[in-house]
Structures are given as C-alpha cells and as structure tokens.
Amino acid sequence: MHTSLACGNWMPIGCLNHHTQLFVGDMVTVTFYDTQGELVDLSFKYEIITEEQGGPHNWPRFVAEYINTHIPLVAAGRMTEQGLVVAYRSNQIYTLEGCGITRAELTFKCIAKCDDCQAVKPAYDYIYPEKCSAYNAGVKVLQPKTGLIYKCKPWPFSQFCNVKEENNPLYEPGVGESWHLAWQQISP
C-alpha cells in the first residue's frame, strides 16, 4: 500500500470490478492514459500462472497489489474509513489529482476456452462524470461510486444523462434519487 495516500486528493480512474473467470496462461492488460494517449511506461500485463490466481475473486486483488507495489502515482483498492484496503473483487483504481493520469482500462487476452472473456474494448465509454455534456442515448459509463456500469436510456430520457452531477445530482447514475429515469444498470 502507498504511504503517500494522505498526501493529496485521490480520484477514481478505473475499476477492477469484473466477474470474469480467468485460466492459466490468460493475460490481464492494464493500460493507463493521460490526455495525450497511452502511458506506455506505466501500462503492464499480468499473466495468470496458477489456477488460484484466475478466480474472479482473486485476480482483481492480485492486480491491485501489483499496482500498489509497482505503479507510481496510482493506487488500487477500496476506500474505507481506515484508508485504502485491497479487497477480493471490486477494487477501484485511483490516481493523484493533478498528476495527469486520466483513466485506466483493462483488457483480457484469453488463450484458454473462456466464454466470459472479452478482449480489446472496455465495457464502458466514460468514467462518470468525464465528458458528461457528451452523454446521449446508448452511452455507457462506469460509476466509480458504485463500481457498476450504466447505459443512458433512449430519448426522451437521454436528456437527463448529460446533466452534470453538481448541477443536478438527481440523475447521477446509480446514486441519484431519480437515476432510474435516465440510466439502466448493465453490470451486476
């Protein structure tokens, strides 16, 4: 765990909240980006080398521990009253506000037979509230507060998707009082 967690504001940039069973030889790639594109020096591949590592409750914890040990300005885990704790499943990826890192994406390369694995593209278009004025019908967002993905409903409900959270928190996906009017939860 980073000792510098108290030395700045940490903002969520991605999520290790996947319920995918991985197998020996499969690979999880974590790619970090800034506004200019991919940060090659920070991005990494994590190969599953044991059956235990590939469990849907285990590999998110192992990847979070790897991030906390090897990637500067980035931390992974769950924010609790005691601070950042690496958990089984559902770990968020955070970065120090102002460091320039804007998002983290996970992709999977499955060499074993794996019906659950989907590679190349993340399951969401944006991390909420990133570029919220561009949201329209069909846009998928990762809500860092819940770790879940939400899809903007079709018109006329889509007009409520692109309302910035501080202006109208009623429609904030997953947490606003009326979020169901604008969003559909698509991840468990």
Rank of each mutant, 00 (worst) to 15 (best):
F160H: 13
K131F: 11
N58I: 09
K164S: 14
E51H: 09
A75H: 01
Q92F: 02
R89F: 12
L148A: 11
C110K: 07
C152F: 10
V85R: 11
I48N: 01
Y171P: 00
A76V: 04
L142R: 03
W183D: 03
A104H: 01
T35H: 08
L5I: 15
W155V: 12
A75L: 07
W10I: 02
N91F: 02
H57Q: 12
P72Q: 11
Y171R: 00
Y126A: 04
A87I: 05
E172P: 00
Q143S: 10
H2R: 14
Y94Q: 03
T31M: 10
H180K: 09
L170E: 11
D116W: 02
H18F: 14
C7N: 05
E105S: 02
A87G: 08
E38H: 05
V74M: 05
C99W: 02
G54A: 07
H19Y: 03
K45T: 12
N136D: 15
I49R: 14
Y135E: 04
N136S: 15
I67R: 00
I186C: 08
K131I: 03
C152V: 13
A6P: 06
T146H: 09
N167S: 09
L84E: 01
H57M: 13
G25R: 07
I48T: 02
Y128S: 06
W183M: 08
R61S: 13
D41A: 12
G14F: 01
L96Q: 14
P129R: 01
L148M: 13
P12H: 06
P56G: 01
G176W: 07
W179N: 00
L5M: 14
P56F: 09
E38Y: 05
R61Y: 09
C152A: 15
V85A: 04
P122Q: 11
V163L: 15
R61A: 11
I186S: 06
G54P: 03
V63Y: 06
E38W: 06
T29H: 10
E47D: 12
N9K: 14
L148I: 04
W10V: 01
N168L: 10
T20C: 10
V120C: 07
N58D: 07
C114K: 09
Q184G: 06
L170Y: 08
P60K: 02
V28T: 12
C15S: 15
E52M: 01
W179E: 01
A64F: 02
V139A: 06
T50M: 13
S158G: 02
Q53R: 07
K45I: 14
N17D: 11
L39V: 12
N168R: 04
Y150M: 05
H180F: 09
G37C: 14
L16I: 05
Q21E: 13
F44H: 10
T20W: 08
R89A: 13
S4D: 15
Y171V: 01
P173A: 08
E165R: 04
V175P: 02
E105T: 03
L181G: 05
L106N: 00
T29V: 12
Q143K: 08
V141M: 05
A182K: 00
E47R: 13
N136M: 13
Y124R: 04
E97I: 09
N162Y: 03
F62T: 00
W179S: 00
W179H: 03
S158L: 09
N9E: 12
H2W: 09
P173G: 04
Y135R: 01
G55K: 11
L170A: 12
F62P: 00
T80Q: 12
S4H: 06
P129D: 07
E51I: 08
P144H: 07
L16C: 08
S4V: 03
R89I: 05
M27L: 15
A112T: 11
Y46L: 06
